[in-house]
Design a protein around this nucleic acid. Structure first.
Lengths: 186, 186
DNA sequence: GCATATCAAGACCGAATGGTCCATATATAC
DNA sequence: GTATATATGGACCATTCGGTCTTGATATGC
């Protein structure tokens, strides 16, 4: 069933929750109606499974980028350059399942709220730790405190996903990331 | 018909395009089905009218905040503090019609693409001009160039709208704005 | 070979979708 | 008062929505 969740995730990712109809999911997962409902309960259940998978992927990627064994500043640069890729061209146009879901369902779907809240909190925590390590090695600009920098970064990453939807030019994303790192890193 | 557009805007704003059904619009605008279709063609047409109004409001507000007659740094602070308000509490939960529309329809609806593209470009231009004025009065931090700062600010503003949807705490938005201004202004 | 469990295909359901149309009322013009 | 626009309420339409259920095929276990 894992592959079905992945396929469904792709579908929700490109269309959004409301705009993804059941026939879309059947085609994508190659499941029959009966099998889909037997396995996942309903559209909403399948969506939550897909969202969980998307979140797990994103957090795993973050852990790789921000590996404590690497130089923290380099990790942060890698992390952000990943977002430059993801918000440019076709990837940018595709958008982000998390941000799209936040805008579409947050405040109306408690299950979604919980997941999205946890994700962004977790991301912020990981980034704050990386910034703290950067500070310890003197790689942080004067007067920047790790927790604040982490919050700013999470905000910018979310903003980049929106930018990527509307004007997915690499130069724009790169400019944002560069300006940001110039301000925060020593 | 102007009041009808405003009412429809409120409705799309709180629910999003797909999730707003015709009965919602009829109730909100107090129009009959016939009158609504006679006046706006269809749901999509009414949506575009509502989006145009939302954009006009946002740009007008920006012009007030960034009035060239005021001290540019103060204008930028006012501009951002407005976004702190708009991304906190109930206002935050409500979200932003532009960002929500971008995530929901960008890349699939040319009319929407045009409008959203123009809006963010215009916002960026206004901010770049304000940063340029700030630089001229020595209010900009060393090494910050106006155009880059403007792009970063647009990105952060978009990010704030997403943050406001998921965790609309004033402290979080305020922290982002403070960190940002500390980095960019002298 | 036979029984059993699994799954695909799709008919079918009520409800809701966006959109059309018309009969009726309510104005306005003269 | 009468004729003429205009707008209203709501019946009505085809389609699509998410979801259920039955039927028949395909395995699997023994």
């Amino acid at each position: 069933m894992d592959v079905a969740v992945a396929r469904a995730m792709e579908e929700f990712w490109t269309r959004g929750y409301h705009a993804t109809a059941l026939p879309d999911l059947l085609r994508a997962t190659k499941l029959s109606r009966g099998s889909l409902y037997a396995a996942f309960g309903d559209k909403h259940g399948l969506f939550l499974r897909a969202l969980d998978r998307y979140i797990a992927d994103a957090l795993a990627r973050t852990d790789v980028d921000l590996d404590p064994l690497r130089a923290p500043a380099a990790g942060l640069r890698t992390f952000l350059s990943g977002y430059v890729d993801r918000t440019s061209g076709a990837s940018g146009r595709r958008g982000c399942l998390l941000v799209a879901t936040a805008m579409e369902l947050a405040g109306r779907d408690p299950e979604v709220d919980r997941r999205i809240g946890k994700f962004f909190k977790s991301l912020e925590t990981k980034l704050a730790a990386a910034f703290a390590r950067a500070q310890a090695t003197g790689a942080l600009a004067d007067g920047v405190e790790p927790a604040g920098a982490a919050r700013l970064l999470v905000c910018c990453v979310e903003g980049l996903r929106v930018m990527g939807k509307t004007a997915p030019t690499r130069a724009a994303s790169q400019s944002v990331v560069d300006t940001l790192l110039d301000s925060l890193l020593a």
